[in-house]
Design a protein around this nucleic acid. Sequence first.
DNA 1: GACTGCCATGCTCATATGTGCATCAGCCTG
DNA 2: CAGGCTGATGCACATATGAGCATGGCAGTC
Lengths: 332, 332
Amino acid sequence: MSMAVATAAARRSEPLPDETRLMLRAAQLYYRLNLTQDQVGERLGVSRFKVGRLLDRALREAAVRIEVVHPAARLVELEDALVDRFGLAGAVVVDVPATGSVADDELLARECVAEAAAAHLASLRPVGAIGVSWGRTMLELAAHLRPGWTAATEIVQLNGATSRSAYPTRAHEIVERFGATTGAAIRLMAAPAIVGSHELRDALEADPSVGETLAAARASATAVFSMGVMGPDSVHVASGYLGDADLAALADAGAVGDVLGRFLSLEGRIALPSLDQRTIGLPLGELRAKALTVGLAAGTGRGPVALAALRAACVTVLVADESTAAWVLDHA
Amino acid sequence: MSMAVATAAARRSEPLPDETRLMLRAAQLYYRLNLTQDQVGERLGVSRFKVGRLLDRALREAAVRIEVVHPAARLVELEDALVDRFGLAGAVVVDVPATGSVADDELLARECVAEAAAAHLASLRPVGAIGVSWGRTMLELAAHLRPGWTAATEIVQLNGATSRSAYPTRAHEIVERFGATTGAAIRLMAAPAIVGSHELRDALEADPSVGETLAAARASATAVFSMGVMGPDSVHVASGYLGDADLAALADAGAVGDVLGRFLSLEGRIALPSLDQRTIGLPLGELRAKALTVGLAAGTGRGPVALAALRAACVTVLVADESTAAWVLDHA
DNA sequence: GACTGCCATGCTCATATGTGCATCAGCCTG
DNA sequence: CAGGCTGATGCACATATGAGCATGGCAGTC
């Protein structure tokens, strides 16, 4: 019953605004009783347009969840093979139906993996402090967390993320939702992911504004993160952390992708130490030391990073789609 | 990981028909990638009408679940009070937002309670044999069960239900969904809920067709059931088990509602022993003996039955809406 | 082989919903 | 206080969806 206590406590502290109450009532009336937006508007005394917008917001804020229950979702053979091969504490491999379009496959894989990860995390019930990273897959995961899925004390952002480009990292949204669903306090890392020099990195990490979060990140027993690919559609490129020169250097060094902004070679080693020293956040070695580390790999081309992360021994539970899992097992 | 094994095993035995695969792909494309039904049809090579029907089926079969996450859903104070007052193992009290219409309130209460019950059951993870009853609330509960929510060996119907009227009890649907989501075998009770005579009841219960299920019902450590009100909209009246004479006699005897077809007085005693002896299924005493009994009470007017059931000591975990819980605590 | 009832399909048309745009209130700024 | 900015509202219209009905294949029956 601790779950109920936690969510209730979290709630009591801020007694939810009228607008949100309205949104939830609208959602109930529309989705549960399937009234039309018109009818809902009549009941609540607002225009149908407003109802539409309320429902929109409910969907975006994940107050309404639409979920496809896929009876054949998990591929136990691959899960077992991964656990055996890499000595994992667990693995979740989901079957992602093909959509016919590459971009959509990517999206769908992210959704399916995120959903499975949310469910698996809930079954693991990590307590205490939980460290999280950011990125598209993490955002999706956050959206799939259910209120009260576990009772944590603190959610800590594991690596820097303040974007320098128009493309936002939305790291705070992710951390906030983890916090809101668990009743935990949150701790953001107010720093870029990658800076220009080793010295600046050290100075920032030494400053309390970043350093305290970093210390909390070190202290957390659990970490949840996604794996990024390298290349023009990488989140780090889109967010402006990596320029062409960095990308070229990484490619030369054999980097295949990143974990918490740390770019790895296929063998699971830091690909470019000079870049690593300009990266703000929990270092790979600290990640390896944690009791529970859940890594998500979703979408085409994630095979190599997943393998690298496994070889780097910084993942104890892998959540991946079928093609990624298959690639890893084929190339291990 | 036993959950994955169970669902996978359940799947492997019947490799899901093409039509169902199609339905799931359509649901993915429509709900997850929000394509229009037209676009989905184009991708899958079927007409938009067919897509509409596939989605319809997906919704009805609960392959797509639309859920309103209500951040203020649980009322912990009431839960604690119920646990203390009646010595329960647990209680779940959900806040049901008012809709403005009495009939809709009823519907919504059923939905909210069923959803909360499904979530709570999953967190309890009952194993072995699970006995279940039937009724509108149970049907709703069954629809909210997620594949792999627990790993049971057997799902047993606890009381008779073959309908004699046009209004179907849908007991088999309920039991089947419990079975399908847990990978368990199912055992139906092929008998009416209430028959005309004590002797016929005994004869039916002695017959292997009913007796074996009844023995399994006795043997199960867990029971899940809903509480019914007495009156013209009772499921037993709608299904044709109770006529006007029976209703009048029950009213005279002070019956307030039923648990597994056993009508109780407000004090928690069998209201009308002569009727009880014509009722097929697990008797109240056997229910009391179980380790875990989860009782659902949803909707207006359920207060009295809920109190009766609590006094009868046949509930260890109560799941109810706020008004029911409040009524019970006011009148205890 | 003709008949018949059944079910899946696709159609038309009414309805429900989303989008872009004009409007307007509130609020900061000079 | 004028001006202008921002965010919320409602509208007209284009589009998407659902309901009822006609069609046509198909299996079972005589």
